[in-house]
Amino acid sequence: MLYLNYALAYLNLEFDLKCTGITALCGHSGAGKTTLLRLIAGLESRHKGILKFDSRTWQDHRIFVPPHKRKIGYVFQDIQLFKHLNVSDNLAYAAARSRITVAEIDEICKKLQIDNLMKKMSHSLSGGEKQRVAFARCLCSKPELLLLDEPFTALEENSTNILLDYLVKLKLPTIYVSHSLDEVIKVADYIVQIEHGKILRQGSLNYMLQFLGRNGFVLSAQLLSHIKRVSSYQTLIGTINFPDLNPRTTARLFIDNRNIQIHQHHILSENCFAAIIDAINFEQQYFCRLSLNFSGVGVEVLILCSKLSNVNNLVIGQTIFLEIQYAQVI
């Protein structure tokens, strides 16, 4: 649990974060995202406020825990490897100040594919390699909270995917600043939207997508098979099959609301799932927001009323059938 309360001239925030998964901070440039990360890290000691992480107070009117005692991992936007040390020594710098084992370091290096770079100096690494080393170094300090400030800006897709996949597997409480909505959809569990130094809104990934310009919902998925360019993914609502050129073992599927159909009777389709309507809300005359319950898994869909036959006949508690025509692997 992270509790934070700062009332600064340009940043007026108070929030409680469960901080169990990956929390994405979204907002325009200058909204206060980086300042917020720096406050959590303890790099802005001049500002007064209250900050608590789990049962520990990191800052209040009497206490200020300096950054080196907070056990946080911070990956900065501009990659900052120590130029006087090679890759191996950069990692050793963090390892020497934590209680990480050699086996754990080896595993991090292997997972982030940097085990062949150990003797290289930072100036001879590519941008993607530098960022993977910076990420590995941060993990070598055995952080209890990870702070990532747009860590994957301007990185090639391969490096970004390696880092994002590993980030999801880490299961470390993470606060993640990104401008890329695709990255956020790929990893975030919870989203906080900041505007002009204040929290505009916050909520789960699927709740927040509508405010971030994506009309759809996300499902976590495991690849079951990939035959003749058709992937079969296991999700919480059932097995979804669709044409897919780049199958991934573990993925998130983004289902655009334009690629779904609601049927009141079961149809013969491989991607048709039964759900009970929990709530019905009409928005702006033309849209209908349905809260659907797939045997305990809740999903909200916003659909054009014109796509629903006999929309006025829908009632709460009714069983309908959701047909997914296409899903995008994120």
């Binding site: 120590f82 170094r137 300090s141």
Partner: peptide, 11 residues
């Protein structure tokens, strides 16, 4: 920033 990185790494 170099010093700040070191601080976040426990120095």
């Amino acid at each position: 920033t170099s010093l700040e990185v070191a601080a976040t790494l426990g120095a």
